Simulated scan of single mutants.
Amino acid sequence: MIRSVFVLAIALAIATGDSDDTTPSFHRNGEFNRYYLYNSRVNGQQMSLTTQSSDIIQGVTTVVIVHGHEESYQTSLNPDLRRELLESQNVNVIAVDWSIIASLSYSLAQNSVLSVGEYMAGFLALQNINPASLHLVGFNLGAHVVGVAGRRLGRVARITALDPSMSNVRLTSTDANYVEVIHTDGSSNGLGVQIGHADFFPNGGGSQPGCWGNDACSHNRAWLYFVASIRDNTFNARCCRTIRQKNLDRCRGAYLPMGGNELIKTPCSSGIYRVNTRSSYPY
Rank of each mutant, 00 (worst) to 15 (best):
I2R: 15
I2K: 15
R3T: 15
R3V: 13
S4T: 15
V7P: 02
A9F: 13
A11K: 11
A11E: 15
A13G: 13
G17V: 11
D18T: 10
S19D: 11
T22F: 15
S25Y: 14
Y35D: 09
Y36I: 08
Y38K: 04
S48G: 09
T50N: 01
T51Q: 13
Q52V: 12
S54M: 11
D55H: 13
T62W: 12
G68Y: 11
E70A: 15
S72R: 08
S72F: 10
Q74R: 14
Q74F: 04
S76T: 12
L77V: 05
P79E: 02
D80I: 09
D80E: 10
E84D: 05
L85I: 14
L85Y: 02
N90V: 00
V91G: 00
V91K: 01
A95L: 12
D97W: 10
S99T: 11
S99A: 13
A102Y: 04
A102K: 08
L104I: 07
L104E: 11
A109S: 15
S112L: 10
L114K: 13
Y119L: 04
Y119N: 12
G122C: 07
A125L: 11
Q127H: 06
Q127K: 04
N128I: 00
N130W: 00
A132F: 00
L134S: 02
H135T: 06
V137S: 11
G138Q: 04
L141R: 01
H144A: 03
V148P: 12
A149S: 14
R151A: 12
L153Q: 05
R155I: 01
R158G: 11
I159H: 09
T160G: 01
A161L: 05
A161I: 01
L162T: 03
L162K: 00
D163L: 01
D163G: 07
S167N: 06
V169W: 00
L171T: 06
S173K: 15
A176P: 05
E180Y: 04
V181D: 02
T184W: 02
D185H: 06
G192C: 02
V193S: 09
G196D: 06
H197V: 05
H197S: 07
D199V: 04
F200Y: 10
G205E: 06
S207R: 03
Q208K: 05
Q208G: 04
P209L: 09
C211T: 09
W212Y: 15
W212H: 14
A216Q: 15
C217D: 07
C217N: 10
S218D: 05
H219F: 08
R221M: 08
A222T: 03
A222V: 03
A222F: 07
W223N: 07
Y225D: 03
A228M: 07
S229A: 00
S229H: 00
I230M: 14
D232A: 10
T234R: 14
N236V: 06
A237I: 00
A237Q: 04
A237H: 01
C240D: 07
D249M: 10
R250L: 14
R250Y: 02
R252N: 15
G253Q: 12
Y255F: 12
G260F: 02
L263S: 07
I264A: 12
S269T: 11
S269P: 00
S270Q: 08
S270E: 08
G271Q: 03
G271F: 02
I272P: 06
Y273R: 06
R274F: 01
R278C: 09
Y281L: 09
